[in-house]
Design a protein around this nucleic acid. Structure first.
Length: 391
DNA sequence: GCGAATTTTCCTGTTT
DNA sequence: CAAACAGGAAAATTCG
């Protein structure tokens, strides 16, 4: 008989989140992980334990946790890191995506960086969800374009296009390739945002009043949505729009040479991608499989995220890498959820764990039930290794 | 399709 | 006795 006990706990981090007591970054991660837990914890499958002092029905999860209001009021290119995390969280929830497939340490970027990513990079970073994320950010930016066009009179000459109106109408009226359209906008705005003049000086406009490199994310920017925007419910047809090849090399016949040139080259020094993001992209490209796809990584990731770890596992000796399962069957169920295997049990999970002894990913801890120790062939669990993810 | 890596499943026996 | 632990064996999955 399958046991689904111990799954109904409402994690403490959610409560602290609601109370607003979390530190900024923890709050961000909690937000994301809230979605993770929300995705993984299946209320209809669980029974609630009487001694579970923190338990609340998952159905009562406060969805305003992933309120879109903060990021939706700011242009994507001006999003703070918190906006980015909230935006991703929003999509994870909306698409009922298994957030455990996303390496959130790779999300440490602000909107200006996110906005520069290609479709391939979105897919690399976010897997299947990357498609939706990419389409949505394209959509957000596109809706801005129509408003932006009205500002074109303010542009310096060298960012004018040969025939901006024609170009824009071609883009927006054709069943446009989202990538080309976004690239077009990116190229244009890269010039726009690299002006020397203070952004707010000549144009006291709503679009840029939120721009601040050190924005705390509480800015009250402008709505990006133009009237014709479909909003966040976004039609599925839009979201599912197929990728008609994303490179700038795709069907560019509609565009002026000058536009293509601008797409290829941006003036000034390119914005630097954060170390985290670079490493993440590199590792995703080079490694056999994505981070977190192995059991020991799954276990490690629960352990290094106390918000998620609540009640599942605990460190016995963090410096030594010794940890213990507190809710073995619950962890097994989560592992099963991740692998889409509803019949996973701790018995089977532990067999896989025991295979790690020979490979020295784990070391045996004799005489202690449910206790394991990370071995020399594991990584990413030491405090110094996880600092970058938690600051 | 192949092969290696990594589980997953099942099982028998042992230990706590 | 129940729950864990130990591994062998083989099937299944995933990915390059």
């Amino acid at each position: 008989m399958k046991r689904y006990d111990q799954l109904g706990c409402f994690p403490q981090w959610v409560l602290s989140d609601i109370a607003g007591t979390s530190m900024s970054t923890d709050c961000e991660m909690s937000n994301i992980l809230g979605t993770y837990a929300n995705t993984l914890y299946m209320p209809e499958q669980v029974t609630y334990e009487a001694d579970n002092t923190l338990s609340l029905p998952i159905a009562d999860l406060p969805f305003e946790m992933t309120d879109k209001s903060s990021w939706s009021s700011v242009l994507p290119m001006f999003w703070t890191r918190q906006h980015v995390l909230e935006w991703i969280s929003y999509h994870v929830e909306k698409n009922e995506w298994d957030a455990s497939t996303i390496d959130f340490s790779c999300c440490n970027m602000d909107g200006s960086m996110l906005w520069q990513l290609s479709r391939e990079e979105f897919l690399t970073l976010f897997g299947g969800l990357g498609e939706k994320l990419y389409n949505h950010i394209s959509e957000l930016t596109s809706s801005f374009l129509s408003d932006w066009k009205q500002l074109s009179d303010f542009f310096p000459e060298d960012v004018q296009f040969d025939n901006p109106q024609d170009t824009y109408s071609q883009i927006s009226s054709s069943d446009a390739d989202v990538d080309v359209e976004l690239s077009y906008i990116k190229a244009s705005l890269n010039d726009f945002t690299s002006w020397d003049m203070p952004l707010q000086s000549s144009i006291e406009n709503e679009y840029f009043q939120t721009y601040s490199p050190s924005s705390d994310g509480s800015s009250s920017g402008v709505a990006v949505n133009s009237p014709q925007s479909e909003g966040y419910g976004g039609s599925e047809s839009d979201l599912e729009r197929t990728d008609s090849k994303s490179d700038l090399s795709v069907d560019t016949s509609n565009f002026d040479e000058s536009i293509l040139k601008q797409q290829k080259r941006k003036r000034g020094r390119p914005r630097k991608m954060s170390k985290d993001s670079r490493e993440c992209l590199e590792s995703k490209k080079n490694k056999h499989s994505a981070r977190g796809s192995h059991l020991w990584e799954f276990i490690r990731d629960i352990l290094i995220h106390p918000e998620l770890n609540e009640g599942l596992m605990k460190w016995e000796d963090r410096s030594e890498g010794i940890f213990k399962f507190l809710r073995s069957e619950a962890v097994a169920q989560l592992w099963g959820q991740k692998k889409k295997n509803t019949s996973m049990t701790y018995e089977k999970l532990s067999r896989a764990m025991r295979y790690y002894y020979k490979r020295e990913i784990l070391e045996r801890v004799d005489g202690r039930r449910l206790v394991y120790k990370f071995g020399k062939n594991s990584s990413g669990w030491k405090e110094e290794e996880t600092l970058s993810n938690r600051s």
